[in-house]
Design a protein around this nucleic acid. Sequence first.
DNA 1: CGTAACGTTGACAAAAGTCAATACACGTGG
DNA 2: CCACGTGTATTGACTTTTGTCAACGTTACG
Lengths: 250, 250
Amino acid sequence: MLLHPPGTPRNALTMRLARYVDLTGHERDALAALIESERRLSAGQLLQEQGGPVDGLFVVQQGWLHSSKRLTTGGRQILRFHYSGDLIGTSSIAWSVAAASLTAVSDCIVATVPKANLGRLFAAHPRLGALLYAVACAEKVAMADRLTTIGRMNALQRLTILLLDVLARLRVTAGGVVDTIELPLTQTDLGDALGLTKVHVNRTFRALEAKSMIRRDGRRVTILDEAGMTAATGFVDRYREVATEWLPNP
Amino acid sequence: MLLHPPGTPRNALTMRLARYVDLTGHERDALAALIESERRLSAGQLLQEQGGPVDGLFVVQQGWLHSSKRLTTGGRQILRFHYSGDLIGTSSIAWSVAAASLTAVSDCIVATVPKANLGRLFAAHPRLGALLYAVACAEKVAMADRLTTIGRMNALQRLTILLLDVLARLRVTAGGVVDTIELPLTQTDLGDALGLTKVHVNRTFRALEAKSMIRRDGRRVTILDEAGMTAATGFVDRYREVATEWLPNP
DNA sequence: CGTAACGTTGACAAAAGTCAATACACGTGG
DNA sequence: CCACGTGTATTGACTTTTGTCAACGTTACG
């Protein structure tokens, strides 16, 4: 864990990237210069709306959000959850219209990143550019996993994997042997994330309880049989590391 | 359309990127130096196996392939199709083990790209690095669309979208007013791509025929009512362009 | 001409969705 | 403090969609 000089805004992206490589002082400065202003969101608040104009990206500094898409035919799909250190809104890199909405799940703080700053970063610090590329590729793999889960697994497995996944993320920050999740999501939200209806999410929760896999108290979920849940789904948490040996020198 | 000096291997990635920005001579040289050797595959052949070791990436020079994942619980999910100019096997950027299998759909030619070459490219040509990042972000958006399709649409809509999507890709290369697709995929393959069983794919094909949306002759599919199919699904083909105004100077 | 892979179909089963009623929790204004 | 309203969770009855199993047809190809 590294300290930052007082006065410099805390930058969760720097801390994330520092997990993968040893950052030079210049690189740290460049990452700090990437972000412009901070914004505070309360749970449920909309940061970016699908179809709306976008000026740039965001770094999640604290809390979590999700990105979602609304269908013209009705319905919504939650695409993924974004945690501290994630660079989000990256659809704005390719287009000037948001491809998805960004919504705060918990209270959170995000920093804005104008697109032009990103261009400067690639020019001045190729290694960081390459590292961002590696992270984007890792995220593609994560999306592929989600696609597979939704395309090929049943409701019980889908919900199980979501719980194990959130648990894994939680452990990164919380450390230690966490086994309880505070889920600030409605069952409708979970359904939209899993490709299920809220009614079926409820029944699936009940089934997991009946099998003594989990215990629930309101929106607090306790994982009782992590080994069984892992075995039933083949869940693997792979997203701690990215290969860095191919990166150019700083 | 641009010519390349005789002797220089044709590089589909260069042609792809040249669609987005005007490439300098140096950049063209660097992209040509990226690829190492070419490999010819016949339809159905495996290029890379999930879980197997990976040394680098590939550029699709000709033909098309798909990437797929096998589940520990049985079953397979086809993640996406890869066309000429795509840089594939990018999971190897983040890990040394392949996250997915790569299989030739048609006869095709791929060029190998060692990871280290990519690192050099980022260092020497930041603008190309940034452009690759933009392409990766666009692919994330495409995956998000697929996730939404599979999570929230029924069999009829899913198959319709797949057909419209392949058609759109076909038009990029073929130009003109194509409305017939030669699909070298079995119905089992289509099911694995759509999160359906082969039996249901068959019934869905029949339903599309019954509604006079398509006509089929073997594996040749003719789109009869593109407008109707588009309206029924809200399909939008967005993947022709990426924003480039934020890229650093070459 | 035989074989293997693929496509097609029907009968039936299972999973998930829909609709509707009720329960519960929480915050607000009286 | 209570009544009320709103949003969420829970449940049952029923429908629809999709999957499963098994048979049979078709096509391509040696």
